[in-house]
Amino acid sequence: MRPVNEARRRRSKLVIWAVVTALLVVCLALGLGLGLSLRHGSDDGSGSSSTISPRPTPAAVWQPEPGTTWQIVLNSVLDIDDDTPTVTPDVAVFDIDMFLHQDSTVIANLHKLGKKIICYFSAGSYEPGRPDSHKFRAEDLGDELQGWPGERWLNISSPSVLSIMEERIELASRIGCDAIDPDNIDGYQNANGLDLTSDESIALVSFLVDKANDRNLAVGLKNAFDIIPDVVDIVQFAVNEQCAQYKNCGNLKPFIKANKPIFHIEYPKGAPGKVAAADSDGACNARGSTGFSTVIKAMSLGGWVEYCDGGTVDTKVFT
């Protein structure tokens, strides 16, 4: 009987080795897959490790073209007559504060005039006094934003914060916005008190795009140079502040290559109304800014605007 037992033992060993080998192959495959998924997707030195697969902009979502003309007013409600609506300047796009205009007829009147509306809100900071400010949990609030008393960085990975942002996107859709301008997603670049990372900002942008595009809203990337390579394929435009001042307009080239507009703002001394010609020229002809849609504004982002052809306009607002 011994030869039979020996044969059984050999077969048992062979089965065990086969099982072990199969498990090793599976583990190796999983390990390689995990390594690939964690690898930085762009190899561009931006420092982020997240990768977002490119996705086409849904057909119903507005995709503005490079060079699109615009005006941005964030501190007031635009004053547009309901009976015979008119607005100056005669540009294609208006970027306005969403909450200030949620109960007005401004968006409907701008649409009557053939304008597109970008609705501004902060996606990365808590602002006291907003209609939904009471919904933010204390544990999701970080340090104050430098220069903005009372405004605090948010834990942008918090399910509670993301839920509030989805509600804001739903409001933008309901009141007729064509796009959103979510501000302050670059907390990782600032002293935020929450240890925010660029990967969290990439994830936030992806979340905002998913929720906005589902409601036929376009999305812009506000500043946040480091994550441009990771999100340029999924957002529809960029909004930039002061790249001429800080000499980094060239960092926005991926948007030009992707045939997407860069809505560019500079805040030179003297604005509104007394900007030196050299400062206007510096804002409009900064290195790397070819093709940008540049406006010269006061930091308060009121109705006054200067364009690169030298023309100035004061959009009528309620005071």
Rank of each mutant, 00 (worst) to 15 (best):
Ile175Tyr: 08
Pro254Gly: 13
Asp233Asn: 04
Gly273Ser: 11
Pro131Arg: 07
Ser206Phe: 09
Ala271Arg: 09
Val231Pro: 03
Lys135Pro: 10
Pro159Met: 01
Pro66Asn: 04
Leu24Ala: 04
Gly142Ala: 10
Val87Gly: 03
Lys116Met: 05
Ala7Leu: 12
Ala224Lys: 02
Gly291Arg: 04
Glu306Asp: 11
Pro131Ile: 09
Arg10Glu: 00
Asp103Pro: 06
Lys274Asp: 14
Arg9Thr: 04
Val26Gly: 05
Thr290Leu: 08
Lys297Ser: 06
Trp70Leu: 05
Ile175Leu: 08
Thr84Pro: 06
Asp195Pro: 07
Phe121Ala: 14
Asp183Ser: 12
Glu127Phe: 15
Cys308Thr: 02
Asp97Thr: 06
Leu252Cys: 08
Ile262Lys: 00
Ser12Tyr: 14
Phe255Val: 01
Val295Met: 08
Thr86Glu: 10
Leu34Tyr: 11
Gly47Ile: 07
Leu141Gln: 04
Arg287Thr: 15
Leu110Asp: 09
Ala212Gly: 14
Gly303Glu: 04
His264Asn: 12
Gly282Asp: 12
Asn251Gly: 13
Arg152Asp: 13
Gln236Tyr: 03
Asp83Phe: 14
Phe207Lys: 05
Leu221Met: 03
Gln146Ser: 14
Leu36Tyr: 02
Leu194Arg: 10
Arg8Gly: 01
Ala278Ile: 15
Leu301Val: 15
Pro268Ile: 15
Ile234Gln: 01
Ser293Leu: 06
Gly311Ser: 06
